[in-house]
Design a protein around this nucleic acid. Structure first.
Lengths: 174, 174
DNA sequence: GTACTTAGTTCGGCCGAACGAAATATTTGC
DNA sequence: GCAAATATTTCGTTCGGCCGAACTAAGTAC
């Protein structure tokens, strides 16, 4: 039934059947459902992410900068320029905007007075965290439907997919 | 160990411990690992998504339009304006760009000559599909590490998370 | 201490996406 | 068939992010 096609209607999604084994019927069907669920989830993740950013009034380059600061701690403007791929002049504007929105602060570099360290403003970030904590409670509640063993399986799966996506993203960019 | 804090170092991530139960030690620990894995995976998903878009030379509004066309089939410019939230004049430019990149075609509306139907150019999309099919093979290979029952659990989990993310995104936007 | 390098900002300009208003083409209502 | 309504495009403008070049300030080499 799901494989039937009318003559006038053409395929709208990739032919993923080609990527699954044919010898194990149930597994093949499960993989297809997994692809579908993964695709839906990816879309929802992207939309959720952009909704959060839009709510904070952030554009992609600003998100990226905040992400870098969260990962690596305070960075100089030069570091930000290198990691974001922006020109130095653009970083000045970027940090100006983030500072105006109070997401970051410029502080003096302890030893080199030419440099400017950009650090996250934790008080501001706290509001964002409050939202995520509330959301985490919803997630935890939704996880009631899963045993701890099942969640372990999910974690393992997510880690594998994270690897695959990073690999594919790098291949696309490089 | 993981709960220790030095005096000078402040918390960099939300206090998710508050969202997990305290009575079941293993479950609490598993939920925290799940949050961490989910967070990593979300980031990877967003980066993968933007890598694909960048590779195709697409900006967010163009992606959104293509997504709508894929979901609903051919749409008029008015439909696109309503769904994307853009002004009619902006849709003209949007479709111009997508048409120049050969992702879509303008076709006459069968009955109403005022209207313009915008439809996906499947030949162009086929290239994109070829990439996703190859990628699906990698995913299928990576799934060898999971039993079919485990994959069923993962599917169920993804569906629940998709719901939660959509709900949260709607709450943020509305 | 003078010349050179490095870090960051300021300035002016550019480009692309989005907009509102006016123009055009077509359909609908009477 | 003529007026009002509808769909889209054209036009001119605005706005924002990014850039290169020039500039300032601070460290480094000799």
């Amino acid at each position: 039934m799901s494989g039937s096609e009318t003559g006038s209607e053409r395929r709208l999604v990739p032919n993923l059947e080609a990527a699954v084994p044919t010898d194990d019927k149930r597994r093949a069907e499960t993989l297809l459902r997994l692809f579908a669920a993964g695709r839906e989830n990816s879309g929802a993740t992207v939309m959720f992410h952009s909704a959060v950013s839009a709510r904070q009034g952030l554009i992609p380059s600003e998100e990226k900068a905040l992400d870098l600061l969260e990962r690596h701690g305070p960075l100089t403007a030069k570091d930000l320029a290198e990691h974001t791929g922006l020109a130095p002049a653009s970083v000045t504007g970027l940090v100006d905007r983030l500072e105006a929105k109070e997401f970051v602060r410029r502080v003096k570099h302890p030893t080199d007075k030419r440099r400017v360290l950009v650090e996250l403003n934790r008080e501001k970030i706290a509001h964002l965290f409050a939202f995520f904590e509330e959301w985490a409670r919803d997630i935890a509640a939704a996880c009631e439907a899963f045993s701890t063993d099942e969640l372990d399986t999910v974690i393992r799966f997510l880690q594998v997919m994270t690897q695959e996506q990073r690999k594919a993203a790098a291949r696309l960019s490089g």
